[in-house]
């Protein structure tokens, strides 16, 4: 299908050939979709994003991106690699990994410069993305001097400067304060409204409703145990509980013990 961005068929991947990370993943992602990949720690979410970004390649099965099979040797061709990387951008979970340049400005410029964008245009983009993410005051700062929230926004800016068609977010809201979480959710929603495909790996169920229309749940067997609309998945409490995404919460109300499931944004007695 022409609007298919990614198609995964029976994808298996293991680290060092002996530690399985993905086992038989099948998935089709279409242009403009908002997808969330949820699951407990160690279920293969980050590995999936790295596969989609062409950083690692499956041991078995196929990954097709924009109608072409994603192969390791195809990335050796600079033109082909650039064509793909200009269309797909990954925001890593650890911003310290993504921000490897000595200043924020150079980090944002790094991507476009590799693709041969002229310095004047790069300077224009830096100012533009800095304004979008409200980081103008950080441009000449050194990344290690920034707070976690600031680093995360700069990491997003470094990908936004490339302006890819597909954004891959790995735990974009982990460890952030509520206001920064709000900014990142708004950014994701706006990007999707501009026609960008969004794929987010997270176990933060509070944000799923806003950042995803479709949700895939990864289980301990390192494969998809269920996929569907965000509403249907979030309402399947037994599925969420069996996959460590919600838990039974015990506390006291007015001197009596109270036990309930801990669900995202759901009021209780």
């Amino acid at each position: 299908m022409s609007d298919t961005v990614f198609e995964l068929k029976d994808v298996h991947y293991s680290y060092l050939g002996k530690f399985p990370a993905l086992c038989g993943v099948n998935m089709t992602i279409r242009s403009g979709e908002k997808i969330a990949v949820i699951g407990a720690n160690g279920t293969g979410k980050s590995t999936l994003l790295q596969l989609l970004d062409g950083l690692i390649f499956p041991d078995r099965g196929t990954v097709t991106a924009f109608g072409e099979r994603l192969l390791e040797h195809s990335q050796d061709n600079e033109k082909a690699a650039h064509r793909f990387r200009q269309r797909v951008g990954l925001v890593f979970q650890n911003a310290d990994i993504q921000l490897f340049c000595p200043s924020v400005r150079e980090d944002i410029a790094f991507g476009p410069l590799q693709f041969g964008v002229a310095e004047d245009e790069v300077s224009r983009r830096i100012l533009e993305v800095a304004e979008v993410l409200d980081i103008q005051h950080l441009l000449d700062r050194v990344p290690h001097q920034l707070s976690i929230g600031e680093k995360r926004r700069v990491a997003i800016a470094s990908v936004l400067a490339i302006d890819p068609d597909v954004y891959l977010f790995d735990e974009p809201t982990a460890g952030l304060d509520p206001l920064t979480v709000r900014h990142i959710i708004d950014f994701i929603v706006n990007a999707n409204q501009r026609g960008k495909t969004i794929i987010t790996a997270t176990h933060d169920l509070h944000i799923i409703g806003e950042i995803a229309d479709t949700v895939y749940v990864f289980g301990r067997n390192k494969s998809i145990v269920r996929g569907g609309s965000s509403e249907s998945v979030l309402n399947d409490r037994s599925l969420l509980e069996s996959n460590n995404l919600i838990h039974m919460h015990r506390h006291h109300h007015d001197g009596r013990e109270h036990v309930h499931q801990h669900l995202p944004l759901e009021p209780h007695d």
């Binding site: 970004d53 690699a81 990387r85 200009q86 951008g89 150079e106 590799q114 790069v122």
Partner: peptide, 14 residues
Amino acid sequence: AMISRGYTGEPRLL
């Protein structure tokens, strides 16, 4: 992370 942003062995810097 460098490869993901288009690095192919010959860096171009500001």
